[in-house]
Computed example of a mutant assay.
Amino acid sequence: MERDRTRIGVIGLGNMGSAHAGYLARGEVPGAVLAAVADCAEARLGWAREQLGEGVRTYGSAQELFDSGEVDAVLIATPHYAHPDEAQAAFRAGLHVLIEKPAGVYTKQVRQMNEAAAASGLVFAIMYNQRMNPLYRKMRELIADGELGELRRINWIITDWYRSQSYYDSGGWRATWAGEGGGVLMNQSPHNLDLFQWITGLMPSRIRAFCGFGKHRSIEVENDVTAYAEYENGATGVFIASTCDAPGTNRLEISGERGKLVAEDGKLTFWRLRESEPEFNRTYQGGFGAPEAWRIDIPLAAGDPQHHRAVTRGWVDAIRTGAPLAAPGEEGIRGLELCNAMLLSAWTDGWVELPVDEERYVKALQERIAASSSRKDPEAAGVPLEGKGTP
């Protein structure tokens, strides 16, 4: 194995893990080489031996790979519950870590992972590949530069996550509390929940959410969500997500004192006020009227269309040169906290203050895991019933 390149191991060879292993094996990440993979299914290891090349070692468990001495860093793409425990085991083995989203299922578990990462001194990243999207990067840049002034409203309707019943029926772990720990918030929308706070730089002070559990589908988790958020500065936000709307919508609108940004259909529009709303309101004497607004179609920089590969490349650069990470692993807890707050609000039919009461959330989740349909078939769930450990 070449020691002048960072040796990567991929843990989990499902859809995403196989894709990561593929571009690494093809040499598409400079400075990195795929050295090993691990999966508990022999069929997936057989696929790896056929598709990834003779130089890639295969292991039947994550711990075997951690102990092998064959890798410098690992990319973890296993079921949600396993991410924190496997990351901590990797840190103990002296390995850098990149985890797939979500960071975990509940913030208490992820907070422990973050503490282990900080103590290790190793490079820790999360696969928030949408942070590499030029559209969202430009929105964040404009807001950070003060182009909107103080933010007032954040609205995201993200209902183009359509999933049929056959999708949910394709695996016993899917759409179950024991298998995935949630539905649209935990599986489809982690990127959106991350961007909801990353683009603006704001976390809500409290959330009130309404969730449909198994709405129009035979599943036990949430697949239709409407959440209302309040912020310390008086701003408000609405987050709507669904897997049963057809056709769906993906529209993000952020308003401030100096106008609004609208992201839709891959385009970014800035409605810029010639005069800020507070100044107009203070001086205008004409009764009916509104500040003059200019429509500006914001040009977007070209980016790597393979956003996942771009995150991996940034992680490898951070390992090799100390370059800053676009998605530090410790930041995975923020979007997850929004998810936990929304679910807890729906379960308790009330407001939830942030930070979330972690013990209360874990207790409520464990009650649902105890009744989860995937408990009837632990192997189908893919994780231990208590939601801990390394599968």
Rank of each mutant, 00 (worst) to 15 (best):
E2Q: 12
E2C: 01
R3E: 14
D4L: 05
D4P: 03
R7I: 10
V10Y: 06
I11Q: 12
I11A: 12
G12C: 14
N15S: 14
G17I: 03
G22T: 15
L24H: 11
G27A: 04
V29A: 10
G31I: 13
A32I: 02
V33A: 14
A35P: 09
C40R: 12
W47G: 04
R49W: 03
L52F: 05
G53M: 13
R57N: 10
R57S: 15
D67G: 13
S68I: 03
V71E: 00
D72S: 07
A82T: 10
R92F: 03
G94I: 14
L95K: 13
V97L: 03
L98I: 12
E100C: 10
K101N: 04
A103H: 03
T107I: 14
Q109N: 08
Q112G: 07
M113D: 01
G121T: 04
F124S: 11
F124C: 11
I126S: 11
Y128K: 10
L135E: 09
I143W: 04
D145Y: 07
D145R: 11
E147C: 13
L148I: 07
G149A: 11
N155Y: 07
W156Y: 06
I157L: 11
I157P: 02
I158W: 05
W161V: 00
W161K: 15
Y162V: 02
S164R: 14
S166L: 09
R174C: 07
G179W: 10
L185N: 09
P190I: 05
L193S: 02
D194A: 08
L195S: 08
Q197S: 15
T200G: 09
I207P: 05
G212V: 03
F213K: 09
K215N: 12
I219L: 08
V221Y: 08
V225W: 03
A227Y: 12
Y228M: 13
Y231W: 10
E232I: 04
G234Y: 09
G234P: 08
V238F: 05
I240T: 09
N250S: 05
N250H: 14
N250F: 05
G259Q: 01
K260A: 06
L261E: 07
L261Y: 01
E264K: 12
G266N: 08
K267F: 04
F270K: 06
W271I: 00
W271T: 00
R274C: 10
E279P: 00
F280Y: 15
G286V: 11
P291M: 12
W294P: 00
W294S: 06
W294R: 15
I296A: 01
A301Y: 02
A301C: 05
G303L: 07
P305R: 08
H308F: 12
R309Y: 02
V311P: 06
T312N: 14
T312R: 13
R313C: 07
R313H: 14
V316L: 11
R320Y: 09
R320V: 08
P324H: 02
P324F: 04
G329W: 07
G335D: 13
L336W: 07
L338K: 05
L343G: 00
S345Q: 12
A346P: 07
T348F: 01
W351F: 08
E353P: 00
E353A: 13
D357T: 08
E359F: 00
Y361D: 04
A364S: 08
L365Q: 02
Q366I: 01
I369Q: 06
S374V: 08
K376E: 14
K376W: 11
D377F: 04
E379S: 12
A381F: 03
P384M: 02
L385A: 15
E386Y: 13
G389W: 02
T390D: 13
P391I: 03
